[in-house]
Design a protein around this nucleic acid. Sequence first.
DNA 1: AAATGAACCTGTTTGC
DNA 2: TGCAAACAGGTTCATT
Length: 273
Amino acid sequence: MPELPEVEVLRRSLGPLVVGDRIERVRAWNRSLREPVSRSLSRRWAGRRIERLRRRAKYLLIDLEGGVTAVVHLGMSGRFTLTPSGAPRQLHEHVALYLASGQRLRLRDPRRFGLVLALPTDRLEVDRHFRHLGIEPLGEGFDGAYLAAAARGRRAPIKSFLLDGRIVVGVGNIYASEALFQAGIHPRRSVSRISAQRWQRLADAVRGVLRSAIEQGGTTLNDFTDGAGEPGYFQVSLSVYDREGESCDRCGGTVRRMVQSNRSTFYCPGCQR
DNA sequence: AAATGAACCTGTTTGC
DNA sequence: TGCAAACAGGTTCATT
């Protein structure tokens, strides 16, 4: 579900609704997410005003007054939505932030690969969850030269390379396939055999795909919604992802699926070399 | 060091 | 129809 565009859409939709609001308390019904949810969230966050929402990689960062940040990761199946406080607890709703306005921020995550953390705002980058993260693809410095330099000494298939968060963050299984299609690069091509020109084309494709997905409100395959519960529309723009057996819009050939390091990769053999 | 596969967990879809 | 296997947007750990 949530790759960089979905988390960014979530951040943008939620920001105007919650910034300035205050957390009254935090409740957790099930603490066994990817890592145990701390028992002291309420004590740490209660009474604090929400100052702003940021994003790093696929993490949503909720900066609170007093130098504390609430970190939320949605894993594969997480949803984080703002709802009226009267609404009943939903199935797989594990954690909720009760706000002074009377609304609740609820984390729903059937597979429980998600994460809720309390961290000091000024120490995020040294925390073990963030320390090893690579560059933001929509930020400064992400270009063909960066990718080419990062690939030196490696021979992995380009698809695996794009999914490696130590190189570049936020690109998940959907957008890796889509960007490689846009760049005309075969997912199995070794990073040791990509020309400078094609590295630049790939960097442009990654940024282009992520930007359009954000504009379209993200990709909703099953259950992604923004902070207000609205689905995205980028799924209708997908060229190859989840389109095995369908015809390629560019060349008319057949979109194929293969498995690389336990993940599905979708590609067009006619368009990608 | 780099690359691969398995593990974490539940729900839904696919295939026999 | 029923059941089991395969598969799903992420990350991390163990093993070659």
